[in-house]
Simulated assay, not measured.
Amino acid sequence: MHEVRGVVARSKGAPVSVETILVPDPGPGEALVQVQACGVCHTDLHYREGGINDDFPFLLGHEAAGVVEAVGDDVRDLAPGDFVILNWRAVCGTCRACKRGEPWYCFATFNATQKMTLADGTELSPALGIGAFAEKTLVAAGQCTKVDPSTRAAAAGLLGCGVMAGLGAALNTGNVSRGKSVAVIGCGGVGAAAIAGSVLAGAGTVIAVDIDPRKLETATKMGATHTINSAEEDPVAGIQALTEGHGADVVIDAVGRPETWKQGFYARDLAGTLVLVGVPTPDMRIPDIPLIDVFGRGGALKSSWYGDCLPTRDFPMLVDLYRQGRLDLDAFVSEEIGIDDVEAAFEKMHHGDVLRSVVIF
């Protein structure tokens, strides 16, 4: 048993606390990981606010990279000393999605079997099955994706969730390709990554839409060719004006609200694709859109789960692009903080002051 410090959300809406966590030695199919860096993601805030479920207390943190310390007896493709990015899609290989050759949709992903606990024995619910705002965490071995050990942990860990979600929304779900026009609504961490992914894919016109001039400035640095401040002008008309009146080939909604989804729906070209990657709350509903408009505009309305990524395929490839200087993951790291600063980081994130705060262990 390992005694470490971790960030816990004990009840809905309450400030997080740093507490003693007990982490078991790995059993069959499990790995113990010494966490080096973990990004502060909106999903962690959703957990704290009760927006995911009510299985409090939560051990927060999931955008992480670190070094494997120990593995279960039956683990063969992972060893102590391996540098890994943690993921929440440890594919099973046997569900209906895996059997049909689409493991990025795996419906039965693995988590660790044993529970991490508070010092008094209270079982913790690890965020997305990871719980990496802790000096060590216990995960399923399949949640560890080996990448080049020379990679900066603070940057690599962001591929564990938000940056991968945005990159994948463009590259995997939206199928952005050379010369296509793309509009991204919402330019926080996920939206900025969607812009970077669109540029990486060779998109011709890349339009960033947000109400915050700071985020639009960041989007330009990420490669956006045009920006629209939707607090000052109609984004649908603006996107159409920048695409010869047609609308964008791909629109990515990185906000996840009915209003932005509707804007994305009408900002597409005929037969265009709308990708929802921003996470809505359970009370939100699809806006009132005439069914004839759905039929008449054609195209595709998609949701992007984790950027439809396959960690074993995508993480090493994206790390290689980062090491080659073709994907600037460092640009997403706004600040490096300590484990005691997570609550303050939530506040900065809420106010749009950062793309990502990253806890360094």
Rank of each mutant, 00 (worst) to 15 (best):
V7L: 04
A9N: 07
S11V: 06
A14W: 02
V16S: 06
V18P: 04
E19D: 14
V23H: 02
P26D: 09
P28T: 05
Q34C: 06
C38G: 06
C38I: 02
C38Q: 02
G39I: 03
V40N: 09
H46I: 05
Y47I: 03
E49G: 00
G61M: 00
A65Q: 03
V68F: 10
A70M: 06
A70N: 10
V71N: 10
L86N: 00
T94S: 12
C95E: 11
A97Q: 15
G101H: 11
P103C: 04
Y105V: 01
F107K: 14
F110P: 01
N111F: 13
N111M: 07
A112V: 01
E123P: 11
S125V: 03
G129A: 13
V139K: 06
A140D: 10
C144Y: 08
T145A: 11
P149S: 14
T151R: 08
A156Q: 08
A156E: 07
L159Q: 07
G160E: 08
G160F: 07
V163G: 09
L167Y: 13
L171G: 09
T173K: 00
T173P: 00
N175P: 03
R178Q: 10
K180L: 14
A183G: 12
V184P: 01
C187F: 09
V190Q: 04
S198H: 07
L200I: 03
L200Y: 13
A203V: 08
T205W: 08
I207P: 09
A208F: 15
V209P: 03
D210K: 12
K215A: 11
T218F: 15
T218V: 15
T220R: 15
H226G: 09
A237C: 04
I239F: 03
Q240E: 13
L242A: 12
T243Q: 09
A254F: 13
F265P: 00
A267V: 07
R268F: 11
V275T: 02
D288R: 04
I292D: 01
F295S: 05
R297G: 02
M317S: 10
D320L: 08
R323C: 10
R323E: 13
G325M: 05
R326Y: 01
E336T: 11
G338F: 06
I339R: 01
I339E: 01
I339V: 03
V342F: 02
A345L: 09
E347P: 00
L355Y: 13
